[in-house]
Computed example of a mutant assay.
Amino acid sequence: MRNPIVRRRAWLAALAACAVACLGTAAPAQDRRQNAPGEFDFYVLALSWSPSYCEQASERGNAGRSQQIQCGGRPFSFVVHGLWPQYERGFPEYCQRPSPRLDRRIMNSMLDLMPAPGLIYNEWDKHGTCAGTPARDYFENIRRARAAVRIPPDFIDAKEPRTVTPAEVEEAFIKVNPGLSESAIAVICDRTRLTEVRICMSKDLQFRACAEVDRRACRRDRLEVPPVRGG
């Protein structure tokens, strides 16, 4: 009969080997480029449903300057959250530390699409520095990407609250954007509300599939769509 101590050591060694193998299988591979500016595969254009953002801010009692600008009198519907460089698996972030200082004039020029100065500065630091372009070119690409996406009519002047399915939101965008497919768009939600639509685009800002982004889409059956505020 084998010594109990020897058997226990063999069992622990086998358990450790299994743990290493299992972790290696489950954990996503680190992209070899590791946050090198300009080295990425595609973009995600993230469009935030502003009324949901404002409801969330109100519930948290958050009345900062950015919330006052976005949630004041102007009737914002979808606003740009960001244009995010992506790998096929994972994404780079904060690719230059410290990040190059963003010219205030560039920030001011983007307030019509991204109505919060803090958001614009943060997007440059976290995502823009990974694009591998000067700040002016990065934000011009945001403007070009946004111009390439048509917003469905039902979401432009949404005066009344309503309830939709994630599939209905996708279908509405696909209907008015030739070339956009289900594999290139993801609807994002919180516990009850539509919060964001994410559209995958190539480096030259053409619609393209993105399996990992699509896997992170909202799985709820129904979503509340708060009405556009102000106006």
Rank of each mutant, 00 (worst) to 15 (best):
R2C: 10
N3T: 07
N3C: 07
P4M: 05
P4D: 02
I5R: 15
R7H: 12
R7Y: 06
R8H: 15
L12S: 03
A13T: 14
L15I: 12
V20W: 09
A21W: 12
T25I: 13
A26K: 15
D31P: 10
N35C: 09
P37K: 01
P37L: 00
G38W: 03
E39A: 15
F42N: 11
Y43L: 08
A46R: 01
W49S: 06
W49V: 00
P51V: 08
S52F: 05
Y53N: 04
E55L: 07
E59W: 11
R60N: 08
R60L: 05
I69V: 15
I69T: 12
G73M: 11
F76D: 14
F78Q: 11
F78H: 00
G82K: 01
G82R: 07
G82A: 06
G82Y: 02
P85A: 10
P85Q: 05
P85C: 04
R89V: 13
Y94C: 09
Y94I: 09
Q96F: 07
R97I: 15
P98S: 07
S99T: 14
P100M: 13
P100C: 03
R101K: 09
R101M: 13
R104I: 10
R104H: 09
M107C: 06
N108C: 13
N108A: 15
L113E: 02
M114I: 12
A116P: 03
G118E: 01
G118T: 01
Y121R: 15
N122E: 15
E123K: 04
W124C: 02
W124N: 04
D125Q: 09
K126D: 11
H127E: 03
H127M: 06
H127W: 01
T129N: 06
A131S: 03
E140K: 14
E140P: 07
R143I: 09
R144H: 07
A145Y: 04
A147H: 11
A148T: 03
V149D: 07
P152G: 01
F155T: 11
I156K: 08
A158F: 15
K159C: 10
E160C: 07
R162H: 06
T163I: 08
A167P: 05
A167K: 03
E168G: 02
V169D: 02
E170H: 09
E171L: 08
A172S: 05
F173R: 05
V176W: 09
L180Y: 05
S181Q: 04
I185R: 01
A186Q: 00
I188V: 10
I188K: 13
C189R: 01
C189N: 15
D190M: 00
R191H: 12
L194A: 00
E196H: 02
S202R: 00
A209P: 12
C210Y: 12
A211S: 08
D214V: 11
D214L: 10
R215G: 09
R215Q: 12
R215T: 14
R215A: 13
C218Y: 06
R219P: 08
R222P: 15
L223G: 03
P226L: 01
P227G: 05
R229V: 09
G230C: 04
G231H: 08
G231K: 05
